[in-house]
């Protein structure tokens, strides 16, 4: 069994091929162990949430949970809407609306809301800087210099349209996908 004389080149090819096959197999086993940390099928399938807006009076805001995140819903006063509308988009640190229902559009107040429902502002209440929850939902809160929201962690100021105006946050507050099921009910997600 030791008599066969081998060409050393060929021997190496066989050994390399075998090692490569073994290594590829071992490597492909890694993926399941990484993917298992991604959100599971149960989390991905979390149902959309329906919210009745009728109890929220003008000037008030509520916070609801959607996919484990807080969502701010504010019934804005005409003054707040007006304030938000008058700001020129070019002056904003982030000129994009960040509205999932209207992707890529400029950050006008109109683009941050749904047509016909401009008094309702619906946003994910997570500061785009490092993930704290900005103040401004309750009447007694510090609403920041622009009358919207203020993040106490690193001092980001958002206006009445939830757009970043001052401070370290890079983006406007995100608007989640939502729609009006009826005049006073929205479905998020």
């Amino acid at each position: 069994m030791t008599a066969d004389v081998e060409d050393p080149e060929r021997r190496d090819v066989l050994v390399i091929a075998a090692s490569a096959f073994a290594a590829v197999g071992a490597a492909s086993l890694i993926w399941p162990f990484i993917d298992q940390m991604n959100p599971d099928a149960g989390a991905l399938a979390l149902a959309s949430t329906e919210i009745d807006l009728s109890p929220i009076s003008e000037g008030q805001a509520i916070t609801v949970m959607w996919r484990g995140k807080p969502v701010f819903i504010r019934h804005r006063t005409p003054t707040e809407v007006e304030e938000a509308k008058t700001v020129p988009v070019d002056d904003l640190p982030d000129p994009v609306a960040r509205n999932e229902n209207n992707p890529g559009s400029p950050a006008t107040d109109q683009n941050r809301t749904l047509p016909g429902h401009e008094k309702w502002l619906v946003m994910i209440g997570i500061c785009t800087h490092l993930g704290c929850i900005p103040k401004g939902q309750s009447l007694s809160d510090n609403k920041g210099e622009f009358g919207g929201w203020f993040c106490p962690c690193h001092g980001s100021h958002y206006d009445t349209s939830g757009r970043i105006r001052k401070g370290p946050a890079p983006r406007n507050l995100d608007v989640p996908p939502y729609s009006f099921v009826s005049d006073s009910t929205i479905r998020i997600g």
């Binding site: 069994m1 030791t2 081998e6 021997r11 066989l14 050994v15 075998a18 096959f21 197999g25």
Partner: peptide, 19 residues
């Protein structure tokens, strides 16, 4: 299928080395 091919390859590689 993968394991059978690889195991076969490993067997022959081992034989080469031990030759």
């Amino acid at each position: 299928i993968y394991l059978l091919i690889t195991t076969l390859l490993l067997y022959f590689a081992k034989k080469r080395i031990w030759a």
